[in-house]
Amino acid sequence: MVRGYLVSALLAALVAAGPIHAQSPVVTEKSAVREGFVFPATGEVRVLLFRPDIKIGETTTAGLFQTQAEWHGAARSELVGALRAASERRGLKVSLHDEENAALTEHRALFRLVVSAAIRHKLFGRDPLPSKSGTFDWSLGSGVARIAPQADADYGLFLFSHDSFESAGRRAAQLVTALMGGANNGGAHFGYAALVDLGSGDILWLNVDLKASGDVRTPEGAASRIEQLLAGFPARAGQGQP
C-alpha cells in the first residue's frame, strides 16, 4: 500500500518537476512498445485486465489527499466499462481478473517498481540509462504465468488511474497563491497502462499520461480517459494503429 503512494508520489513529482526542466513544451504523455512487437495478424487477442488500481478523491485546502468512496465506485465501474468498449473496437477479447492472489499481489509490487524505473530512466528521459538506450526491454519474468494459469488469455493489462479534484477551499487558496505570484498547481490527474506477456512477463507496451483529462466519474469522461491511456497501444501485424 505504501508502494502505491510511492508511485503516485513519483508521478506527482514528475508532474511538479516538469516546468523547471522544460525549455520546450513539457512532455506529459509518453508511450513505448517493445521493439518489433505487434499482435498476430489473425486470431483472437485475449487480454486479462487485472483489477485496475484507482485512486480518486479531493485535495484539501492544505493539499492532503482525501479519498472519496462514492467517486471511487463510479470511477471503477465507468473505467472498466469504457475499457471494455474500447477493447471491442480494437478487436480484443478482454476479461476482468478481479480476485487478488499471492502471485498477483507479488507481481503488482514488482510491476510498480519496474514501471517507475521505466518512467524514470526511459519514458521521460530524466535519468537515461546507457544500457536501455534504443531499447525497451523491461520484463517481470516468467513468474507472471502463476498469476492466472487457468485464464484463457495471452496478455495481461495493468491500469492505474489517479485523480484528485480540488476542494472549494483548495481552489480559493490556490487563487490567493496565484494573486501573490505563486504557481497554481491545479488538481492532479494522471495514470498509466501497460501490457504484459503472460508467458514471458515481458512488458510489451507502456503508456504514461501525467496530465490526463476527462472526469472519470462520468461515462464520457471515462471513455476519453481510456483513449488517452491506450495511446500507442500495439497494432496487429500488417496494420497501422488500430
Binding site: 500500500m1 482525501q66 479519498t67 468512496a69 462514492e70 499481489t105
Partner: peptide, 25 residues
C-alpha cells in the same frame, strides 16, 4: 458502517489495502 465522506474514504482506502494484505506473501 462508516458515516460521512471522510470516514467512508478512509474505509475504502483501508479496504483496498486489506485486499492486498490478504494475498500478501
Amino acid at each position: 458502517q462508516p458515516s460521512d465522506a471522510v470516514e467512508k474514504g478512509l474505509w475504502l482506502e483501508m479496504d483496498e489495502a486489506e485486499r492486498q494484505i490478504r494475498a500478501s506473501k
